[in-house]
Amino acid sequence: MPYLHADPLECTGCRICELSCAFLHEHVLNPKKARVRVVRREEGQDIPVACRHCEKPACIEACPEGAIRKVEKTGLVVINQKKCTGCTLCVDACPYDAIFMHPSRHVAINCTLCGFCVKQCPVRCLEIVKGE
């Protein structure tokens, strides 16, 4: 399945991807509204985390509202924000910690693979790859 990926040693952790993502989708600057987040870990790793659009998504199974589905044609995991009640079960279920709660609308958000952050990354380390 396609997903956003970067080498944790190539990524510098500047978080321009986060700001760009939030600004594109929400017209404000706020990393907590971004669909991609950079986790800084010691031993020098900066890891951009975003939805992996899994083959068998744990989030779909966890959602009691049926608000998450996998689009067959594109392989993308899509969250219906109208159906989402903000229960956070999908957030807990995600093995990659890659679904986030929107801080003001209180619904789950995930990466839509729009590719904007790929374009904005100053070190060009982000790419959309096809995974298993």
Partner: peptide
Amino acid sequence: LVKPRACFSCVQR
């Protein structure tokens, strides 16, 4: 050197 590490919103790192 392991890598350059940037501050927030920095392209120079």
